[in-house]
Deep mutational scan, measured.
Amino acid sequence: MDLSALRVEEVQNVINAMQKILECPICLELIKEPVSTKCDHIFCKFCMLKLLNQKKGPSQCPLCKNDITKRSLQESTRFSQLVEELLKIICAFQLDTGLE
């Protein structure tokens, strides 16, 4: 393996790690329209609304089981920016390397 191939692999590993961190624990995809709970867990807005609409009253956070309500959800613009920038990095990496 030459040096450039090694560096490509390192970049790919970093991108994969970042994708894992920014993954919704419910749908296991890159978070879309991130919302945070009072317990500071981040999920896709759609995933949380789907969870909350399944029953009346408070639901439980899928990660820590604390009570959550629609009102307690906060849009997470910082995470939204992180996801947007990661998508740009992924696109640039794919253009530069031809890898997916």
Rank of each mutant, 00 (worst) to 15 (best):
R71G: 15
I31L: 10
D96V: 01
L73Q: 13
I26N: 03
R7G: 06
Q81R: 06
V14D: 02
V8D: 04
N53K: 07
V11E: 00
K70E: 15
D40H: 09
L73I: 13
E9Q: 12
T37A: 11
A17G: 15
E10K: 08
M18V: 03
L28Q: 14
N53P: 15
L52I: 11
T37R: 02
S72R: 07
K20Q: 15
K88R: 08
E33D: 14
R78I: 15
K55T: 11
I90F: 13
K20E: 05
F43Y: 06
V35A: 06
T69N: 14
I21T: 10
F46Y: 13
S59A: 05
S76I: 02
S59T: 12
E84P: 03
S4F: 03
S72P: 06
F93I: 08
K32R: 07
A17V: 06
L87M: 06
E29V: 10
K50Q: 05
L73R: 04
H41R: 02
E9G: 05
I26P: 00
C91G: 10
C39W: 01
V8G: 06
H41L: 01
K50P: 06
C39R: 00
V11L: 03
K32Q: 06
D96G: 00
I42T: 15
T69A: 13
H41Y: 01
Q12R: 09
K32E: 15
G57A: 06
P62S: 13
E100K: 09
S76R: 06
C64Y: 01
I42K: 10
D2P: 07
D96E: 00
T77P: 07
V14A: 10
L87P: 03
F79V: 03
L52H: 08
E84K: 11
C27S: 01
G98P: 06
K65E: 07
E29G: 11
I31N: 08
I31F: 03
I90N: 04
D40V: 05
A17S: 08
N16K: 09
S80T: 11
K32T: 04
K56T: 09
L82F: 12
A5G: 14
R71T: 14
D2A: 11
L30W: 02
K20N: 12
L6R: 14
R7H: 08
P58T: 09
I31M: 03
V83L: 09
L22P: 01
Q54K: 09
I42R: 13
E33A: 08
V11A: 15
I15T: 02
L30V: 13
F93L: 03
E100A: 12
A5T: 13
V35G: 02
E9D: 05
E33K: 10
C61S: 02
N53D: 04
S80N: 07
D2E: 06
C24P: 01
F46C: 07
K20P: 04
L99V: 11
N53S: 11
L95P: 00
S4A: 15
E23D: 11
L86I: 04
E10A: 10
K50I: 04
R7S: 08
F43I: 05
C27G: 00
E10D: 05
L86R: 00
V35F: 09
L99W: 13
N53I: 10
Q94K: 11
D40A: 10
E33Q: 10
F46I: 08
C24G: 00
L22V: 03
E33P: 02
E85P: 03
I68T: 03
K55N: 13
K38N: 13
T37P: 04
V11I: 15
L82H: 02
L87W: 14
C91H: 13
E23V: 14
K65P: 09
L22I: 03
L63V: 05
K45P: 02
P62T: 11
K88P: 13
N16S: 13
D67N: 05
